[in-house]
């Protein structure tokens, strides 16, 4: 792997049946590139959490992935309601997930904590009424 691989995914805000497409697609690419299973697991789990958040909390968005020999960088962006208090949202157990999402097993308030525990760097930028970006970096 000498050059940069860039991938773009649109994240549908309504269709739960395809939520997780971006993370499973990236998982396949990383496998083909011979990236180690531990790194793949970290990337796939954190991408899935961010993808599901984009669906549930923001009504959809996009993921832009960049794979270089030393790192995997993913930027999730949405034009949803934004996060009032990012530090609070990062706390384990904090959740504003709606009832329908809780019935499906989401809403433990563990997603952002899971991301933080699996990546080397996470940057969340959010403005109320404008949207949110979640940027994650995993070093290879």
């Amino acid at each position: 792997m000498s050059q940069k691989i860039s991938l773009h995914y649109d994240i549908d805000g309504k269709d739960f049946s395809i939520a997780g497409e971006a993370s499973s697609s990236v998982k396949k690419v990383l496998k083909q590139l011979g990236v180690s299973p531990e790194i793949i697991r970290k990337v796939a789990i954190s991408m899935y959490e961010a993808e599901i958040n984009t669906v549930i909390h923001a009504g959809g968005g996009a993921a832009d992935v960049e794979i270089t020999p030393d790192r995997i960088h993913v930027m999730f962006s949405d034009r949803g309601p934004g996060i009032a208090d990012v530090a609070l949202a990062m706390k384990e157990g904090f959740s504003t997930a709606p009832e329908y999402a809780r019935e499906m097993g989401f809403g433990a308030g563990m997603g952002l904590a899971n991301i933080k525990n699996n990546v080397d760097e996470v940057k969340i930028r959010s403005a109320l009424g404008e949207g949110t970006t979640v940027e994650i970096t995993v070093l290879i």
Binding site: F16, S24, I45, Y48
Partner: peptide, 15 residues
């Protein structure tokens, strides 16, 4: 798990 919706497949794959 008592969850039976589609998302359990993704979670099983990821873990």
């Amino acid at each position: 798990t008592v969850q039976t919706n589609l998302n359990i497949v993704a979670v099983a794959t990821l873990t």
